[in-house]
């Protein structure tokens, strides 16, 4: 309904998702006492271009580590990561990131926050202004471009952060628990918004979350990670038609089957304990 109207506002942007290939990826952190903490252990993964991949796993299993590695923010200990066949060692221009907190710059207006990556990439800012406003419209924030972040609620700010990632037209979008700090109602709305934004551009998404329900609802594929050192315990293909509607998806037998399967893994590993 409202959702679809918003989608129509946007011009079609043709953009292909990036192919991601991760081979024997390990990451060990050196701690203060010169110990090593193995956060990721020999991970092999391939993301199909344009797929929506969700990662769930217990706290501290290395999800954020995986994201930082893909974002080129930290170096690998072993193994390789490549985006469209290019090995990455530093931040790749095809990658956009949304963090758990919105990380908006409070001295910039909403519009200027969205245009920050354009400035940093030394692109012509004036050419992206219209696109920024379109994105704002898409997340229901039309007219908020000249406001400052302090004038916005938490959910609105996170929407702006998502616009800031999308304006980079990232072939690979990395999201680290983007809805973790939001109330249930706002979260639901944003899950729907994210789905429709993603359906427009069909880029590759790595979506890290603690919410099994949002992982299954959004993703084409859910990866379940083991406790540290992180490995992939389950690689689950989610086959439900899109666009997925909130109510019908939650009434779908298949949906509950997927959730059950993930919960079973957590229970088997003792991450979720049944009483």
């Amino acid at each position: 309904m409202k959702q679809d109207q918003r989608v129509n506002f946007m011009n079609a942007i043709t953009q292909t998702g990036a192919a991601v290939s991760i081979a024997r990826l390990s990451k060990a952190y050196r701690t203060r006492e010169d110990d090593e903490v193995l956060a990721l252990d020999q991970i092999d993964l391939d993301f199909e271009p344009g797929s929506f991949v969700a990662v769930v796993g217990p706290s501290g299993c290395g999800k954020s580590t995986l994201l930082s590695l893909l974002a080129g923010l930290i170096g690998v200990t072993e193994g390789t990561i490549s985006i469209d066949g290019e090995a990455i060692s530093k931040p790749h221009p095809k990658i956009g990131v949304v963090f758990q907190s919105d990380l908006l710059l409070y001295w910039r207006t909403v519009l200027d926050n969205i245009l920050l990556p354009i400035e940093i990439k030394k692109l012509d800012v004036s050419r992206y202004r219209l696109r920024a406003e379109e994105l704002l419209t898409q997340v229901g924030l039309d007219g908020f471009g000249n406001k400052y972040p302090s004038e916005l609620s938490g959910g609105m700010r996170q929407r702006v952060a998502i616009c800031r990632a999308f304006i980079q037209e990232p072939g690979l979008l990395l999201m680290d628990e983007p809805f973790g700090a939001l109330d249930a109602l706002t979260r639901e709305q944003m899950i729907m918004d994210l789905q429709s934004m993603w359906l427009r551009v069909r880029n590759t998404v790595l979506f890290i979350t603690h919410g099994i329900d949002e992982a299954v609802f959004l993703a084409d594929r859910v990866l379940v990670m083991s406790p540290r050192p992180g490995r992939i315990d389950l690689d689950l293909k989610i086959e439900m038609p899109r666009p997925r509607q909130w109510n019908s998806a939650h009434e779908d037998k298949a949906y509950h089957g997927y959730v059950r399967q993930i919960r079973d893994i957590f229970e088997a590993k003792g991450i979720l304990v049944a009483h």
């Binding site: 930082s68 974002a71 080129g72 923010l73 931040p91 221009p93 990658i95 956009g96 990131v97 963090f99 907190s101 990380l103 710059l105 001295w107 920050l116 990556p117 400035e119 940093i120 990439k121 980079q168």
Partner: peptide, 27 residues
């Protein structure tokens, strides 16, 4: 400064010069 802000602009490809003038100094 919130270290995550540095990660953010780094992920956009900012060099230290840009990080300083876009984030560190204004903050």
């Amino acid at each position: 400064l919130d270290k995550n802000l540095v990660s953010l602009v780094r992920s956009m490809g900012a060099n230290e010069w840009q990080t300083f003038f876009k984030v560190r100094l204004p903050a």
